[in-house]
Measured scan of single mutants.
Amino acid sequence: MQRVNMIMAESPGLITICLLGYLLSAECTVFLDHENANKILNRPKRYNSGKLEEFVQGNLERECMEEKCSFEEAREVFENTERTTEFWKQYVDGDQCESNPCLNGGSCKDDINSYECWCPFGFEGKNCELDVTCNIKNGRCEQFCKNSADNKVVCSCTEGYRLAENQKSCEPAVPFPCGRVSVSQTSKLTRAETVFPDVDYVNSTEAETILDNITQSTQSFNDFTRVVGGEDAKPGQFPWQVVLNGKVDAFCGGSIVNEKWIVTAAHCVETGVKITVVAGEHNIEETEHTEQKRNVIRIIPHHNYNAAINKYNHDIALLELDEPLVLNSYVTPICIADKEYTNIFLKFGSGYVSGWGRVFHKGRSALVLQYLRVPLVDRATCLRSTKFTIYNNMFCAGFHEGGRDSCQGDSGGPHVTEVEGTSFLTGIISWGEECAMKGKYGIYTKVSRYVNWIKEKTKLT
Rank of each mutant, 00 (worst) to 15 (best):
R449K: 07
V368S: 07
E129Q: 12
T271W: 08
E456C: 06
F221P: 15
S365P: 12
D405W: 09
C134V: 03
E79K: 07
A317I: 03
I17A: 09
E171K: 09
D315E: 02
K387L: 06
V56Y: 01
E86G: 05
L321Y: 00
F144Q: 03
S11Y: 08
D95Q: 12
G432P: 15
K89H: 12
C102E: 02
E72L: 05
F123D: 03
C155I: 01
P175C: 04
S448I: 02
F78T: 03
Q96P: 07
A9H: 12
I334E: 00
W118E: 15
V242G: 00
E142H: 08
N104T: 03
T225P: 09
Y444D: 01
S350I: 08
A192C: 05
L383R: 12
V353L: 05
C382M: 03
Y444H: 04
H361I: 10
I136R: 13
C157I: 00
K274I: 06
T417Q: 04
E129K: 04
T225G: 13
N113K: 13
E281Q: 11
S217Y: 10
V174R: 09
G122F: 04
K168A: 10
V248G: 14
A164G: 10
K362E: 13
C141N: 01
L369F: 14
I336A: 01
I15R: 11
T215M: 05
R3N: 13
A173T: 13
R191E: 15
H282V: 11
S255M: 04
C170W: 01
D33Y: 05
S385R: 12
L376V: 07
L346C: 02
T290S: 10
D232I: 15
D110N: 14
A149V: 13
R358M: 07
I336V: 09
G413P: 02
T461S: 14
A308K: 09
D232G: 05
K362T: 09
T445A: 05
I336R: 01
G58Y: 02
G398V: 04
P12S: 14
V56R: 00
P235V: 07
K457F: 07
P414Y: 07
V326M: 14
I443H: 05
Q90E: 09
E231G: 12
T225N: 15
R83Y: 10
Y305I: 02
I334R: 00
A173D: 11
D131L: 13
R373H: 12
N306L: 05
F424Q: 00
C69A: 00
V331S: 03
S430K: 03
Y444Q: 01
E66H: 05
T461D: 15
L20Q: 02
G246K: 05
I297E: 05
K311P: 14
G50L: 06
F251R: 08
L376M: 11
L189I: 15
I284T: 12
I284M: 09
V56L: 06
Q167V: 05
S204T: 10
N135Q: 14
Q408W: 14
D322Y: 03
C108Y: 03
K247L: 07
I454A: 01
Q167M: 15
N127I: 09
G402Y: 11
D315N: 09
I309H: 11
D223L: 11
V353Y: 04
T194Y: 14
I297F: 05
P235C: 03
W453K: 00
S70Q: 06
R180F: 05
V374Q: 05
T84P: 03
P175A: 12
G106V: 03
A436R: 11
F251V: 08
V77M: 04
G50C: 03
N313S: 10
W431D: 09
Q57C: 00
V359M: 15
Q143P: 00
L41W: 04
N306Q: 08
W261C: 02
E420N: 11
R43V: 02
E66Q: 08
E142Y: 05
K126P: 13
A397K: 02
S385M: 09
I309W: 07
G230Q: 08
R62W: 01
V353H: 04
